[in-house]
């Protein structure tokens, strides 16, 4: 008796929803980045789960590519946070509105 594909997809969906709430509600850019990681990881879980149930290695390759993209995204995001800190800006996503259209 092993858990089926559906159980992994449900866990992945719950994690994605939690990450989404964090991205939308938190105001500290650092915590927004952490929530984004939760969302990316939930997508990875779905990819690996589908890959296992279809029976090819493709899903795992996709998950590895997502990990690389996530690492790049973290570098740029954290670089932005360091740049904001160096310019003495308030680290609050509700006050950083200069790029608003």
């Amino acid at each position: 008796m092993t858990p089926g594909l559906g159980s992994y997809l449900i866990v992945s969906g719950i994690l994605f929803a939690i990450g989404l709430v964090g991205v939308l509600l938190r105001r500290s850019p650092l915590v927004v980045l952490l929530s984004l990681e939760v969302m990316l990881n939930s997508a990875n879980l779905a990819l690996v789960g589908f890959g296992r149930y279809v029976g090819g290695q493709d899903g795992q390759v996709f998950a590895l590519v997502v990990m690389g993209v996530a690492a790049a995204e973290v570098v740029v995001g954290l670089g932005l946070i360091v740049a904001m800190e160096r310019r003495r800006l308030v680290l609050d996503t509700d006050q950083l509105v200069e790029l608003r259209g």
């Binding site: 092993t2 089926g4 594909l5 559906g6 997809l9 449900i10 969906g13 589908f50 296992r52 149930y53 279809v54 029976g55």
Partner: peptide, 11 residues
């Protein structure tokens, strides 16, 4: 989507 899927048996 999960409720309607038929992919529940692992390869």
């Amino acid at each position: 989507a999960v409720g309607r899927s038929t992919l529940d048996s692992a390869a």
